[in-house]
């Protein structure tokens, strides 16, 4: 590891240097349904898929003052990259995903996808909400179908893709169930299938595994990594769990507490697939956590008025 505590935000920190060994170690893959020949992640290209230019967002609070939630963020997400954003709660990381999804407009700055300015929602960027937002009046299959229906795909095409994506997340038998009949992990996978079915270039995930038990989460980490490798999507993944970020991400971006700024970037080049308990993962996470700690303390000071 090369980092030292005095690095500036612009110089990414590197963990490991094993991109080549990622391929060699692929046989360690343990997901039950993984294909015998593991499709490896597309090499991340240097072409930016999503670029944020000077993004700021402020809003009026109830007492009339303006609160700056996000402050002048410049960030590029490369095509096919798995980018994780970590930060204390209230750092605007979820809001940033909403901005990329086009659900809100930034106060200043703009979001580019490829070379197009984001003006609103679009099925090239699908957000998986923390609360999922599965439609309870639709069956699992119909939930997965929804985005394709909006895109105007033919019935036959939709049926085929429902089958394909439900198989991808191992939920084929649950096509005709309702979301409330499924467990938390299964619901999470429905949301993933629904997002993937619209075949977006960019998948935005907002703390998707925060409410799951540890075993389910580990399993979904494996599946997400596999699906990412199979589909070659660009993923922006927001979490408050640093280990999770290191487990999954090619790069981890640390946000400051309110207003959200990029505090530091960490390049994670550890071999894939990684495990949450691996020593290298733990070591990298500890390093990031030290920087995160400062921000958490700041947030505690603001919200509780104390230093712990």
């Amino acid at each position: 590891m090369t980092p030292n505590a005095h690095n500036t935000a612009s110089e990414p920190v590197f963990f490991g240097d094993h991109r080549s060994t990622a391929r060699a170690s692929a046989t360690r893959w343990k997901t039950g349904a993984a294909p015998s020949v593991l499709p490896l992640p597309q090499p991340v290209s240097d072409v930016p898929k999503v670029s944020l230019h000077g993004i700021s967002l402020s809003y009026k609070t109830t007492n009339g003052s303006r609160l700056l939630a996000i402050d002048n963020i410049d960030l590029k997400v490369r095509t096919g990259e798995f980018l994780c954003i970590v930060g204390p709660s209230g750092c605007g990381k979820s809001t940033l995903l909403h901005l990329i999804a086009g659900l809100h407009k930034p106060t200043s700055g703009h979001v580019l996808v490829d070379d197009n300015v984001v003006e609103g929602t679009g099925t090239d960027r699908i957000l998986i909400f923390q609360e999922l937002g599965l439609f309870p009046w639709l069956k699992v299959g119909e939930n997965v179908e929804f985005g394709m229906k909006m895109k105007g795909l033919s019935k036959a095409e939709r049926e085929e893709k429902i089958r394909y994506y439900l198989r991808l997340v191992h939920l084929s038998q649950f096509k005709d169930s309702y979301a409330h009949q499924l467990s938390g992990g299964m619901r999470q996978r429905v949301a993933l299938a629904r997002a993937l079915a619209t075949e977006p270039d960019v998948l935005l995930m907002d703390e998707p595994f925060a409410a799951l038990d540890a075993q389910t989460r580990d399993l979904l980490h494996d599946e997400l990594e596999r699906i990412w490798a199979e589909t070659g999507r660009t993923i922006v993944f927001v979490t408050h769990n640093v280990r999770e970020a290191v487990r999954l991400g090619d790069r981890v971006v640390l946000f400051t507490f309110r207003p959200g700024r990029v505090k530091r970037e960490f390049q994670v080049d550890l071999p894939r697939p990684r495990q949450l308990e691996e020593v290298d993962v733990a070591r990298a996470a500890r390093e990031i956590l030290e920087h995160l700690r400062e921000e958490i303390n700041k947030s505690l000071e603001v919200e509780y008025g104390v230093w712990p």
Binding site: F135, W137, T198
Partner: peptide, 26 residues
């Protein structure tokens, strides 16, 4: 969340109302 999820998945205008907002508020 339902309105946002609907927009996010490409529903807008009347389709958003008919397929998302109406059933969600039933």
């Amino acid at each position: 969340i339902y309105g946002m999820a609907g927009r996010n998945l490409g529903a807008r205008g009347f389709a958003l109302f008919w397929h998302v907002l109406l059933p969600a508020s039933l």
